[in-house]
Design a protein around this nucleic acid. Structure first.
Length: 586
RNA sequence: GGAAUCGUAGCUCAGUUGGUUAGAGCGCCGCCCUGUCACGGCGGAGGUCGCGGGUUCGAGUCUCGUCGGUUCCGCCA
């Protein structure tokens, strides 16, 4: 079937057949206009009473009816041209028209114009929501995005290999989706959270470079930038690589190409900075900084160490200078304060520099030399504002990290047409888990600690051990995570031993992989890009469900298909499962 | 699991300090209209104000609970 795109403009005075959906109907009594829509666009059909049969059909049409029509493509008179649509110079004078299918009145808005229906309804009737031109565009753009990635990976000698969907439960990380085994009652497969172990085994299997647009499954609560259930990664791995820099430099050109050519956006910096994790936390309060703007965290701890103001008598005092911030209203500052509290601060001290005076609820508690130190260190000028965080160091970083984003949003500093990339490197191998009050893996147990066995054994404070592990950040979104992998069983046992796990535990959990490492495993490194999230960032969207054809909602429910759902007793029996009946007393 | 916020017509929303018969735009139904393009005009139908309890002479409005949506925290190797 021919499309309704502007190629029709070249077929003036020809008879064409077109099909599509009724986008709108304008009935003038003796003359009817139909805007016919397909995936490529809209064209105006004109129906007059002279073609009586077609006219009768057109009179009965309503929004979203499916019709087919034949007619002459006619150039519109100059005053009748519509410059707002690509086919606005022409129209089709209908000769015959068939109603192919009717539509009930719609439960959702299928037009980009006007207010969108609630997301709940959009997801329940996703097949209608997908008819919107912007959603059609997303689907097409995504296919193009995939093509660019595949072409790049192919050209760089990566081999596309699919790995199993029915895999094994992994003890670390996110919650698994379990699949009962019929042939092995009481046993379960798990859907892979990532093809991590498989791709490492491919390296042992002699594959030099692997990639896959890999489905990943995690049973964790979703967010605006995190899908529930399944999502996709551009997953890759390279053998005989023992330096993360090689992986980073291999993948960077692809991401730059996606930014400049695919998304048609400006890179803030051609050189992609490498920022050690510690530095990122100190300067930006987060390991995924949005570098489209500065607003760095400035450490004032030393300058205020003798300060008698009680609020500043904390292990750490830092500040953010907000250029032009003195014009913040009382209400805005109250909202910032509320946000600071939500992130764990007691309050939000500030100084406004206005007309060469200092306006601040805390100025009276500070000595002149302290005010001077603040101004010197922050570089605050007239018209600026300085906001403070004072607490334990990690609390200050977290609070001011959140404030930094809020200030940028308020001032419109995050330019939609720009993309800022960076690599965060040198993640701590271990971190302290406050929840259970013990040491745990910072990211994952598969990366190689820098310094190897010696570092693991001899570093006094295990928190000082770093891994050759790296994340790529795009406009404040973590879009990639990778590492140089541990391919040495001895080191693997040792990194678990630090956490108190014995060899038997490690062997039971990672037996398949550890076994493989005994047989000449090459060094290898790789990474995985969260391509849903990256696509969202490239397209300047903020809801990740908007870029997926059939996403689940915030409760993990597919409103359209009604999953999850109950299954037959027979299916449960075959899977050797029993549903626990609720205790009526509880 | 926690917090914030929302839930009124098919859709998007308004609804004042609690007060007569709960409104608008779009959509739907009927009539009129030969140059509109989100056509226009006239008329009409359509509501258990998410659900349940409470306060009150009186609740869409206040209150408690509950269910559902969204966002954030926890969580996401």
């Amino acid at each position: 079937m021919r499309s309704l795109s502007n190629t029709l403009n070249t077929e003036i005075d020809k008879t064409v057949q077109v099909s599509g959906w009724v986008n709108s109907r304008r009935d003038h009594g003796g003359l009817i206009f139909i805007d016919l829509r397909d995936h490529t666009g809209v064209v105006q059909l004109v129906i007059t009473p002279e073609t009586a049969e077609a006219f009768a059909v057109a009179e009965g049409l309503r929004d979203e009816f499916v019709v087919s029509a034949t007619g002459l493509v006619r150039e519109r008179a100059p005053e009748l041209k519509n410059p707002n649509i690509p086919t606005g110079d022409i129209e089709i004078v209908v000769d015959t028209m068939q109603l192919i299918n009717r539509s009930e009145p719609l439960p959702v808005n299928t037009h980009d114009e006007g207010d969108l229906s609630s997301e709940e309804l959009r997801l329940k009737y996703r097949y209608l929501d997908l008819r919107r031109p912007s959603m059609q565009n997303v689907l097409k753009r995504r296919a193009e995005y995939y093509r660019i990635m595949r072409r790049y990976m192919d050209e760089h000698d990566f081999i596309e290999i699919t790995t199993p969907i029915l895999a094994n439960s992994s003890p670390e990380g996110a919650r698994d989706f379990l699949v009962p085994s019929r042939l092995h009652p009481g046993q379960f497969y798990a859907l892979p959270q990532a093809p991590q172990q498989f791709k490492q085994l491919l390296m042992v299997g002699g594959v030099p470079r692997y990639y896959q647009i890999a489905p990943c499954f995690r049973d964790e609560d979703p967010r605006a930038d995190r899908l529930y259930g399944d999502f996709y990664q551009l997953d890759c791995e390279m053998s005989f690589v023992d330096d993360g820099e090689v992986v980073r430099q291999t993948m960077e050109p692809l991401i730059k190409q996606l930014v400049t050519e695919f998304a048609n956006k400006e890179l803030v910096s051609e050189d992609i900075p490498r920022i050690p994790y510690r530095e990122a936390m100190e300067k930006y309060g987060t390991d995924k900084p949005d570098l489209r703007y500065d607003l760095e965290l400035i450490d004032l701890t030393d300058g205020l160490k003798d300060c008698e103001f009680k609020v500043f008598q904390t292990p750490c005092v830092k500040a953010i200078r907000v250029p032009g911030g003195s014009k913040f209203t009382r209400k805005q500052i109250d909202e910032f304060t509320e946000l600071a509290r939500k992130n764990g601060a007691g309050g939000l001290a500030y100084i406004l520099y206005e007309n060469n005076t200092v306006r601040s609820p805390i100025a009276k508690f500070l000595q002149d030399k302290e005010l001077q130190a603040i101004q010197d260190k922050t570089g605050a000028k007239d018209g600026d504002a300085v906001f403070f965080g004072a607490d334990e160091r990690d609390v200050v970083n977290k609070v001011l990290g959140a404030m930094r984003i809020a200030f940028a949003k308020e001032l419109g500093l995050a330019d939609e047409n720009k993309i800022a990339l960076c690599w965060i490197i040198d993640f701590p191998f271990y971190e302290w888990d406050d929840g259970v009050n013990k040491l745990d893996f910072g990211h994952n147990p598969f990366s190689l600690p820098k310094g190897g066995l010696k570092a693991i054994r001899e570093t006094e404070n295990k928190l000082d051990i770093v891994a050759d592990q790296y994340d790529m950040v795009m406009n404040g979104y973590e879009i990639c995570s990778g590492a140089v992998r541990n391919y040495n069983p001895e080191i693997m046992y040792e990194v678990f031993a630090v956490l108190g796990y014995d060899k038997e535990y490690v062997a039971a959990k990672f037996g398949g992989m550890l076994n493989a490492f005994k047989f000449g495993a090459p060094p290898h490194a790789g990474c995985a890009f969260g391509i849903d999230r990256m696509f969202m960032a490239l397209e300047s969207l903020t809801n990740i469900r908007d870029i997926v054809a059939f996403p689940k909602n915030g409760s993990g429910v597919d409103l359209m298909m009604n999953s999850p759902s109950m299954v037959d007793e027979k299916q449960l029996e075959e899977a050797s499962l029993k549903i626990a009946t609720e205790d009526p007393d509880s």
